[in-house]
Write a protein that binds this DNA or RNA. Structure first.
Length: 106
DNA sequence: CAGTTGACGGCCC
DNA sequence: GGGGCCGCCAACT
């Protein structure tokens, strides 16, 4: 399995109602230094239907402006549809960060 | 094959 | 708390 696929597998495990930071996804994918690679991988998102890349935000809870299919506006909308409240365009990481990834470590 | 790029993160002002 | 700088690693050209 290549690096991108590892990253996608992790993103797919993010539970509804939570978000994960790029660094967190990178760590779960195998290397915490892949934060930038995660961003790259999600930009190249091959399957937006199965990969909830909108649940991945920066450590500050900020969404990307170059969101693949509708801009950050669309991403915010999707997050709110998951029950996540955005304050000033940001997610409250303290509340919504995916803090139990081990429970989803199949 | 070598240099550049980027949906980032940490550290320092 | 916000802005800038540097390091990081795979993909791209």
């Amino acid at each position: 399995m290549n690096t991108f696929e590892k990253i996608y597998e992790v993103v797919k495990r993010i539970p509804k109602g939570y978000v994960a930071s790029y660094g967190q996804v990178a760590a779960l994918a195998g290397n915490r230094r892949w934060a930038r690679v995660v961003g790259y991988a999600l930009h190249a998102n091959p399957d937006s239907e199965q990969i909830p890349c909108y649940r991945v935000v920066t450590k500050e809870g900020r969404v990307s402006e170059a969101f693949a299919f509708g801009g950050s506006n669309q991403q915010i909308k999707l997050l709110e549809a998951d029950g996540i409240t955005l304050v000033d365009g940001r997610v409250d990481m303290k509340k919504y960060q995916w803090d139990t990834p081990e429970l989803y470590n199949y």
